[in-house]
Design a protein around this nucleic acid. Structure first.
Lengths: 125, 125
DNA sequence: TCAATAATGATAACTCATTATCATTAAAAC
DNA sequence: GTTTTAATGATAATGAGTTATCATTATTGA
């Protein structure tokens, strides 16, 4: 039987407030503002639980460990800043990707990641 | 001072013949046909050396460990078969991705991965 | 052919994200 | 309030990929 917990709320809130995919460590840091003694194991446990419950999804940027974002978002892609490492959500898609698929192949989904400098890092020059 | 070695030739040839990005284990298996007693440490050492020499590049598919492909290829993307796991090179690109970049951001490069079933796995039904 | 040493192969060691363990804490039903 | 037990926090253990170690092999210049 599933019980309510301050920690799980803090984790869900952190992901919601961020509006972008977060690494477990980022979730840990952000959620600690709301649940001070939060342990990293609890973060992993609840990310798993929230995923099983269909509340959050896993996002993997090439070369990085998985990040977590709210489920129930429209189709989107991501931008990773090569300076600060932050990942942003992009609500846009080039479309027409079926044309890239070779003869005889079946495409079911796609992932696109843009790389560059975010606003903060661009301005910091 | 760099010496010639049968093992490095076998590794370079395996990547060249494959025509697609290979995992270190795949390189190991393929190159063993040409260099029977090839050890996995030698594979890693030479992948690093070939990368330093600019002969091969590293490719990372989300969630996977790095693969290696020949450098000096035109711009391209990849297709990963969700059935057999094989990664194929796609010499095509949707283009016009600058339009997806948010105001104030600077995009330098992008990565696109298509997922689905390759010819072999599609036919195997 | 021979000497110098780069490269190899086998395997131990390491890295680091993630998971398991277990005593303690705290929801929630009564 | 009391009881039950899910959830937590601290930390040890795990695992997969990669790197380091070192005795041995093999390339290359003399």
């Amino acid at each position: 039987m599933i019980r309510h917990s301050r920690q799980r709320d803090a984790i869900r809130d952190a992901i919601t407030r961020a509006g972008r995919p977060l690494l477990p460590q980022e979730v840990h840091q952000l959620a600690q503002q709301q649940a001070p003694r939060l342990g990293i194991a609890t973060v992993y446990r609840n990310l798993q639980a929230l995923q099983d419950a269909g509340e959050v999804n896993q996002v993997t940027i090439p070369g990085d460990s998985p990040r977590f974002e709210l489920a129930e978002q429209p189709h989107h892609h991501h931008f990773k800043c090569t300076q600060c490492g932050e990942v942003t959500t992009l609500y846009a898609c080039p479309g027409k990707l079926a044309a890239l698929t070779p003869q005889g192949y079946q495409m079911h989904r796609h992932e696109l990641t843009l790389y560059g400098h975010c606003v903060k890092c661009t301005q910091a020059h």
